[in-house]
Amino acid sequence: MNLKVLVASIIIVGALIFGASTFIESNIEYMDFAKAQSVNKKVQVKGKWVKEKESQFDAAKAQFTFYMVDDNDQEVKVVLDGAKPNNFEMATEVVAKGRFKDGYFHANELLTKCPSKYEGNGEAVKKTL
């Protein structure tokens, strides 16, 4: 009986410590570009796509390059591993996950938020009259 309780508690404590440390390690913090530049780790930055500026897909490297402005209006070139995401044009906000590298933000994941599609707005209803 005692042996079982011992085994069980060792397993539980071990699992909790393991879980907590992994949690802290793999947390990706939100920050702006200024702060992201100063830390050398994977972070995520929220902002908007600068549509006026060039954006292009480099087929040879399979990278998509565009400019993004964060909530503090800092503009940064972002290079994404992969193609332009679905819904990119519709996105009101984008979140880039990655890290700074040689003056640009190297993203390996890009999330897009597209509320306009899902939430009916006045412009949309006029088009369907």
Binding site: F18, T22, S26, N27, I28, E29
Partner: peptide, 23 residues
């Protein structure tokens, strides 16, 4: 994680998918 980090640190952050694989 977004809720936990919001309460503990006042800032939202998510875990990397690798968290789930590791654990």
């Amino acid at each position: 994680s977004p809720i936990i980090t919001n309460i503990l640190k006042g800032k939202i952050s998510a875990v990397d998918p690798s968290f789930y694989v590791t654990t």
